[in-house]
Amino acid sequence: MNKLKILVNGIIKENPVLVLVLGTCPALAVTNSTINGVGMGLAATFVLICSNVVISLLKKVIPDKVRIPCYIVVIAGFVTVVQLMMQAYMKSLYDALGIFLSLIVVNCVILGRAEMFANKNSVFDSFLDGVGMGIGFTLALFLMGALREIFGAGTFCNIPIPGLSSQPIAILAQAPGGFFVYGFIIAMLNKVSHGKAVKRKTFDCESCPSHAGCSGALKGGCGR
């Protein structure tokens, strides 16, 4: 695949949060403020790039049976490294992200890309994929965080916006509002890309994480 295409893939066409609908937990949980959203995005991107590279390096070594535990150990290792580094050098962001930093381990984007891409492609391609997906993830979180913070709290990066900060639409800063904004952004994206973003041709049954319990597998695909 064209290297540039791999990179750009993760930003629009296969944006992990908005198209593949992976990593929704942090997307909903930390996007009540822009800074938290971007911070989470960058931390996850770092882990994603590192884990993609390492898993791609080890793809011939790891036997198929134990691949999931191996991936998790590698990912968890990187997340812990990021955690310790943040705690030492970026304490305020560490405090802001709190428990969601540790939850990057089970962020579906990272495990999903390991499964879907890194274990089948070269190291450099995996690196680019990690970068692209990470940028897409961060952009999506920035967008959600910005919308929710501007309209739900009337501030942007904690700077109050005149006119909006007196009567913000409080529901957007809470859980239901997170879902509203998320759905709205996905709808807008679909409209802008005329539905092209929704097609997922690169799925194949064997590498799908829900292969074991999927009824579509018997019929030869999930028909998306």
Binding site: L58, V61, I62, P63, K65, V66, P69, V73, V74
Partner: peptide, 10 residues
């Protein structure tokens, strides 16, 4: 082999 590889990675 799988067990060994997993252990090594750990």
């Amino acid at each position: 082999v799988p067990a060994a590889v997993l252990t090594a990675i750990c």
